[in-house]
């Protein structure tokens, strides 16, 4: 990694730990990016604002949800045109009723990403303007990207087709 990027990383870490003495849990190195920030979901909205307004990460590229069985991870990837690099923001949520504040107020592009994460990984985004099914049919009661959801060969399933 370049020296300037490492410098920026150290700078970011210092500023964030000063700004969020409790919620900011650390900045891990992550190859090819400025690193991965671990944060407490309680400070989500303030952190997003800080990251966007102060540190100029104005483009939210991806929101991913990962099911680690005993916990759920929600991962935001943001990009800065100023620093020319990605930054990952990761929060660990409990497996029971995982929820986090929505990022749509900060990055409007989070809208569909969060809808998708909500229906596939079952992470609720509080105060989301339009939390309904995006990819799956309305009213689908499973969350396919959870580890507990198993795939089957079609022969193992009974297919009942009802003409409507």
């Amino acid at each position: 990694m370049e020296a300037s990027a490492r410098l920026f990383q150290r700078d970011l870490m210092g500023k964030l730990s000063k700004r969020f003495p409790t919620g900011f849990l650390g900045l891990d190195p992550f190859p090819g990016t400025f690193g991965r920030i671990r944060f407490d979901p309680a400070i989500a909205l303030e952190l997003f604002r800080e990251i966007r307004d102060v540190h100029a990460f104005e483009h939210l590229a991806m929101v991913a949800g990962i099911d680690w069985v005993e916990r759920r991870e929600v991962l935001y990837t943001v990009w800065s045109d100023v620093h020319r690099g990605y930054l990952l923001l990761s929060a660990m949520l409990p497996a029971e009723r995982p929820h986090i504040e929505t990022a749509t107020t900060v990055w409007p592009s989070a809208n569909w990403h969060e809808r998708e994460t909500w229906e596939l990984v079952d992470i609720t985004f509080d105060h989301h303007p339009d939390l309904r099914n995006l990819l799956l049919p309305t009213g689908y009661q499973f969350h396919p990207l959870l580890r507990s959801f198993k795939l089957h060969e079609p022969e193992e399933l009974e297919v009942k087709v009802r003409h409507v």
Partner: peptide
Amino acid sequence: GGPFRTAYSVVPGVDK
């Protein structure tokens, strides 16, 4: 169903 026949959202064959 092709490569997606095991998927939860795919009809395994349109002849169904």
